[in-house]
Amino acid sequence: MDTISFTLLLIASSVIAIVIATLYSLVLPGIERKVQARIQQRIGPPILTPGFWSVIKFTYKEKVEPIAQMPRLYKCSVYLGVVVVAFLLLFSTPYWWAVLSWGSILGIVGLLKIEEVIYVFMGSQSQSILSTSMPMPDLAKGSKHIGTRREFVEQHSAERAIKMMAIGSLPIYLALIVPFVVGKSILISDVVSFQNPAFFSAPWYGLPLPSHPILFTVPGFLATIPFFLGYTILLNEKPFSILKAKIDVIEGGVLEYASTLRAAYYVMRNLLLFALSSIFVTLFIGIPFDPFTPFVFLLNMLLSIILPVCLAVLVAFSPILTFRQIYPVAIGLSAIGVLAMILAVSI
């Protein structure tokens, strides 16, 4: 295959994958809300309302300037987030595996790290009305500690984001390494062909099923636990939603996003929900997100619902954990990840 046709195919597959994944990911929050609502004995919103219609509605709202220290950087960070998450999604499309290190674990881990750092950017920029700058005569009444630095809740959220980066993202990285240890390579293509040898030789209309998926081996199954909880941590969902805990920091750094920017934030969050789930299906079951083999593509999309639904159930049944509980939980999960890795070496 010459370079030009390869590039064209690469672009075509990326565009198809991103467009379909974005549309599909906007259905997922509706499914999540519905599952939670049914657990809470409610009917819940229609499936398209929390994701799809909300995003379209936000794009039609008046564009307002966010209150931030550096508004342009603040506005850029959410678009940067969308781009990072879109590239993350492309890790499960086979055309990108041939491009330099794009097909290796290093790329996934690097992009995930950028995604986490974006929350620190957002948090340190945003200055919402809901905390310190609310016009209230509270200082007028005096205080025991005069002259203390007054911080916006978003800045507090940014500090929490740094702590979560330090400890919270370890489990998912360890879990991501396991399939690569089993496949004895750092390339995704090797991991997929290890699980699904028929995939690369199958015709476009074929449905090559994996012969020995890593998920059903002992290390693979063990690694699923830190992967799932690490997924929760990366999405900042309960019980690990400390950096956007509703009860103190409200929504964290994303508070000031309005209209189009909020639509972009919704897309970023929902696309991450889908992208990580799709990467899980690619790495642990061996079914990639390949737009040019439609049946494999659909199967990947179908299986990618499982993690968001599990997430919705977890969210419905858990309170927010504080750092008192998150540190031991993250250490325990990392230990499980290490154990899975040690077991994986022996396969």
């Binding site: 919103p45 229609p46 409200i250």
Partner: peptide, 11 residues
């Protein structure tokens, strides 16, 4: 929520 009204705390 079943009437498509979602509750929020953010203006």
């Amino acid at each position: 929520e079943q009437y498509k009204v979602l509750f929020t705390w953010n203006p």
